[in-house]
């Protein structure tokens, strides 16, 4: 359960932005918050399996690019129609300029 994998370099993601990260047949979304913290969730929206990394990050919200479903990417919580199922989140740490995600 403690398999940390390197997702990207810390500088690869702008502040208040998101990036897609694929690993071992799974897809994740890695976020950098406006206050310069990093987070990770499942990569696909729970509504229609759209890649969230094409969506817009505003504060602590990621909005799905397709139908504007919203999630708090720090907690994974779904924030109203059309999404009702929350996202799974994953621990993230930054080590020597690398963003590591615990994908277990």
């Amino acid at each position: 359960m403690s398999d940390w994998v390197e997702a990207c370099a810390a500088g690869d993601i702008d502040e208040e932005d998101v990036m897609r990260f694929d690993h071992a047949g799974r897809t994740f979304a890695i976020y950098r918050s406006p206050d310069d913290e990093y987070f990770a969730t499942d990569g696909l929206c729970t509504h229609e399996k759209v890649h969230l990394a094409d969506g817009l990050v505003m504060d602590d919200i990621i909005e799905c690019p397709k139908h504007n479903g919203r999630f708090n990417y720090k907690t994974g919580d779904a924030r109203g129609a059309p999404v009702c199922v929350s996202l799974r989140t994953y621990p993230v740490k930054v080590n020597a300029g690398k963003v590591l995600v615990q994908v277990g």
Binding site: V50, H51, D54, G55, L56, E63, P65, K66, N68
Partner: peptide, 10 residues
């Protein structure tokens, strides 16, 4: 795909 989504939202 969703290439224009983010900018249209903005």
């Amino acid at each position: 795909g969703n290439a224009v989504a983010r900018d249209i939202r903005l």
